[in-house]
Design a protein around this nucleic acid. Structure first.
Length: 134
DNA sequence: GCCAACGTTGGC
DNA sequence: GCCAACGTTGGC
């Protein structure tokens, strides 16, 4: 059981849309490092949904319900996607600002490598996040 | 809207 | 196989 952060620009796919859809496939990853992380995801893993740009905050959680398969939006067999379903909303979204101010998050990819769109987090980091969001 | 960081591409 | 040029992303 692993924990992840997946990032989305609300202009292309927002959390509101995610909640409306209930489940979706996480496609469009075109970066090797992010792709490799997608491939490591297992059914039942938890991914935290991060809004980049306007919100810059973790807004809720989804569950991985299907492991990686060929991304149907491209013929290029280098790229994969996974299926996720809506799990829960955060009462208080955790902003990038707060994460930057707290030492416990200093190793999180969001801080260290802001362009990576899929990244693992440790259970400790996950628990720390949970202590902020409700 | 600017710019820094980083990934990718292509010429050599 | 190196590196310059270029494109993209995301924070500010």
């Amino acid at each position: 059981m692993s924990y992840w952060i997946i990032k989305s620009d609300p202009e292309s796919y927002s959390w509101e849309q995610m909640k409306k859809d209930k489940k979706t496939f996480w496609d469009g990853v075109r970066n090797y490092q992010a792709r490799n992380n997608l491939k490591l995801m297992k059914e039942g893993d938890i991914a935290l949904f991060y809004h980049s740009n306007s919100d810059k905050a973790l807004v809720g959680e989804v569950e991985i319900i299907k492991e990686y398969y060929q991304d149907p939006t491209t013929d290029d067999d280098r790229w994969v996607c996974v299926d996720v379903r809506y799990l829960c909303d955060y009462k208080k979204p955790l902003t990038l600002e707060v994460m930057k101010a707290n030492k416990g998050f200093s190793e999180v990819g969001l801080i260290k490598q802001s362009r990576l769109s899929v990244m693992p987090i440790t259970i400790k980091e996950y628990e720390l996040i949970k202590s902020f969001v409700d």
